[in-house]
């Protein structure tokens, strides 16, 4: 039996320079998906769904970026729950996880994978 691997499409989103360290911005992908792009202090780029699962509002990109016990997180600006930037896992409620997207920087441009 074989498993079909979903095809990954890399969408160029913005100039890497448009991301400020330890901050997030929102981006609109084709088809209307909203992602929250974060650049952490070490230069890494992470992409999560922009949807705050607790409030239903598209706001995660506007949360404060930092760490909890070394785990890079964003805190929802609505009610402060923290999400692991790498996995989308909510650190305050283990039943909750937000969708993540692969992200990379190519020639100074940030690209996000859509499936």
């Amino acid at each position: 039996m074989t498993t079909a691997v979903d095809e990954q499409v890399w969408v160029p989103v913005c100039d890497y320079a448009a991301l400020e360290p330890e901050s997030g911005v929102a981006a609109l992908l084709p088809g209307g998906t909203q992602v929250a792009l974060f650049r952490t202090g070490d230069g890494a780029v992470h992409a999560l769904s922009n949807l705050d699962p607790f409030s239903g509002a598209m706001v995660l990109a506007r949360g404060i970026v930092g760490d909890r016990d070394g785990v890079p997180v964003v805190a929802s600006p609505m009610h402060k729950q923290a999400f692991d930037l790498r996995t989308g896992q909510c650190l305050d409620d283990d039943r909750v996880r937000v969708t993540t997207h692969a992200a990379r920087v190519v020639d100074g441009w940030v690209e996000v994978a859509v499936t």
Partner: peptide
């Protein structure tokens, strides 16, 4: 609200 099983109004953490 999509992601919160069993939770209605969510208080601030």
């Amino acid at each position: 609200v999509p992601g919160v099983p069993g939770a209605g109004e969510v208080a601030e953490v």
